[in-house]
Structure formats: C-alpha cells, structure tokens
Design a protein around this nucleic acid. Structure first.
Lengths: 186, 186
DNA sequence: AATCCAATTAGACAAGTATCTAATTAGATA
DNA sequence: TATCTAATTAGATACTTGTCTAATTGGATT
C-alpha cells in the first residue's frame, strides 16, 4: 500500500518524466522523437520510459523500426484519484508503531527496577508515564487511598502527585471525597 | 508551473514524509514525538518537516517547549486535486520545443547548401522533411507541374517522389489530373 | 539572570539516481 | 542472409538527498 504510493510519487518526481507525460498526453511518440524534443540522449529517455512503464503509466507498441509509447491515461487518473484520499495517506502511516513514543518516554524516566527517576513535568510525557503506571491497577476493582498509595510507591515516593494526576487525566476515577478509587475497564 | 508540480511530487516521494503526513492527519505531534514514532533522530524529522512546510503542507505552532506540527489538509487536498488534471500535466511540457524534432531531422538529412542527402524512408522523418520543403511554396498560389519540379529540384533530384509525397500527405493539393498544384493557406 | 530543553542548523557520509558513452540486442529491410 | 536502424542495456560519473552527530539557537522555567 504505502510502498505503491511512494513509488508512484518517486516516478512523478522528475521534470523530464513529467514532460514526457505531458507530451504523450497529446500524442504518441517514439524514443527518438522524445529525445529530440527533450534535448536528451535516447538512452536517457529509454531509462525514463522504463520507470514510467514500471509504474504502469505508459506502454509501447512496436511500429516498424520504432517503439511508439503512449500514455495510459486511465492508470494515471485512477492512481491520482484513488491513491490520494486522506484514508490512503493514513494507510501510509499504518505500520508506524503508535506506542513507540510511550515506550521511549517510559524507558527514559525509569530505573532498572521500574521505579521512576522523576515525574515528568511536560504534559505529553506525563501522560505517557501515567498510561504506563495505571496498568498496575486491575480494571473495575475498588481500591482504598491507602492501597493506591502502596501501589504507586513502587513508582515514586510522591504518591500524592501520581494519584492526583491519574485522576486529573481521567485514567482513574474517585468517589466519595477520596475513599474509593478504581480504573475503568476499557 | 511545472516546477511547482515537480516540487510537490518530490516532497511526497519519501516514505517517512508520507508517514508523517499520515500521522498528522490524525492529530498534531511535536518533533520529538514524531522522531520516536518513526524511529528517527529529531534532526532528521526536522529536516523532513522543513521540506513539508516549504510545500505548505504542514505548519507549526510553539507550545511550551515544543513545536507542535499540524497538517494543512486544505493545502494538501487542493494541490492533489488541482495540480493533477490532464491540463496541468500538459503544462508540464509547455516549455518543450515542439519543433526540435523536425529541426533535428532536417539537419540530419540536409547538406550545407540546403539540398537533401537522401529522402528519408521512415514515415515520421519523411513528414518532418516534407513540412520543411513545402515552405518553399507560397500559400494559395497556383504552380504548374514544371514549376513544382523546378522548386523541388533544389532539394533532391527525385522531384517526382517529393511531389507525390507532398500530395500524399496532404501538404499540397492537385487539380485536373496533374496540371495545377497549390499549397493551401493555413 | 542563569539554566534547561526541544528544535534547528551545520557538516559529513552513504545511498540512490539522472545522465552520458559505448556495447549489445531486436526487428525490419534489401 | 546480410545489413541497417532504433532501442535497450551496461558501466561510469556526478549530483541530489536522507540520515546521522555535533554545535547552535530560541523559548520557557526557576
């Protein structure tokens, strides 16, 4: 998917290949003619046509001595339309590991024993750490404030800050003015 | 015109830049986050973002320590649509010298005095030569066959072939079984 | 004011590729 | 069959550019 899109752009990302497409949009040409029109050697034009052909944008038919190339307009239009939707662009990033950032932050702030060196000040990093810490709680189960603190102590001595931020970011819920905490199932 | 189109494709012709666009299509990210997500160094991501920004596809706003980049969806869609019409592709070839091929053929087959070494056998080359030779006739004026031969003799001794081909390709008209020739105004 | 942190820039290196010349191939003509 | 012509391929060179490390810049926090 993504590779096809990239290959398509790579093929179009050359001025002489764009000119070839523009010329072939009007009429078919032989390699020799294109070379004369573009001021290039036939070998160079052959190279460009091979790349365009590989992308399915042009095709050749033998005509006497010549290979006459013509533009595959249907392929060009279908690619330009279908490949360019926002959905396809998101596909380009589909194989990106969306948790990579969280893992990097966790690694940066954790000691070997899993405890935190410091609690990050930046919002995005704090969120990543909190998403990590909250996994220590079972979904749905109720915890007293004392139990919560005991679990959080494994991460950092400032359990009050961790507890407050977990609630502030909505990762844990609190009920009854402080007596009961839980992590919602998801 | 053409340069803009080429620049646009060049910017899109990189897998990591496509991934960045895909990621930013979902939400905004800082350089650091993108670097972690893509497995690249921040400097590299900065480079890519600079290219995307140069094409107007992304923009940044400062947010505390970070530069948070967002996708300029409007620009992306407008470019992907408007730049990709067949008309724009033909524009890419607009600055190509369409007479270059004819000139090359004429040069290849002409002596210094303007006469032809040989009459080309290949159709495309013959056409180029005939388009050149026909300019020796005034548009609209009538010529006898003898006059036609006299003019063509300056190009090649085989005036009969030249005359026949000029008529065959429609560059000159004949009337009355051979008595009267003319080149139509155009 | 001093410090910190992310972003950017500068410089270097490596991979990809556009272009050329020269050699080879494929096809058509004589 | 032998020859001619255009196309392609092979090999070389030069330029572009994606990536990294190191140094610098620009804001924000203390």
């Amino acid at each position: 998917m993504s590779e096809e899109l990239e290959a398509f752009f790579k093929v179009l990302a050359d001025s002489n290949r764009l000119k070839i497409i523009g010329l072939l949009a009007r009429q078919a040409y032989s390699v020799e003619e294109l070379a004369a029109l573009l001021g290039l050697k036939a070998a160079t034009v052959s190279h460009h046509l091979a790349r365009l052909s590989g992308a399915g944008l042009v095709s050749a038919r033998s005509e006497s001595y010549y290979s006459v190339y013509r533009l595959n307009k249907a392929a060009l239009e279908s690619k330009s339309r279908s490949l360019f939707s926002t959905r396809d662009l998101q596909d380009a990033a589909a194989d990106v590991d969306l948790d990579a950032y969280d893992r990097k932050v966790i690694a940066d702030f954790s000691r070997k024993d899993g405890s935190l060196k410091i609690i990050p000040a930046q919002r995005r990093k704090l969120e990543a750490i909190l998403r990590h810490v909250v996994k220590a709680f079972k979904g749905g189960k109720r915890y007293s404030e004392k139990q919560v603190n005991a679990i959080l102590a494994a991460y950092h001595e400032d359990t009050a800050t961790l507890r407050r931020e977990l609630v502030g970011y909505g990762l844990m819920k609190r009920e009854g003015g402080g007596g009961s905490y839980w992590r919602e199932e998801r």
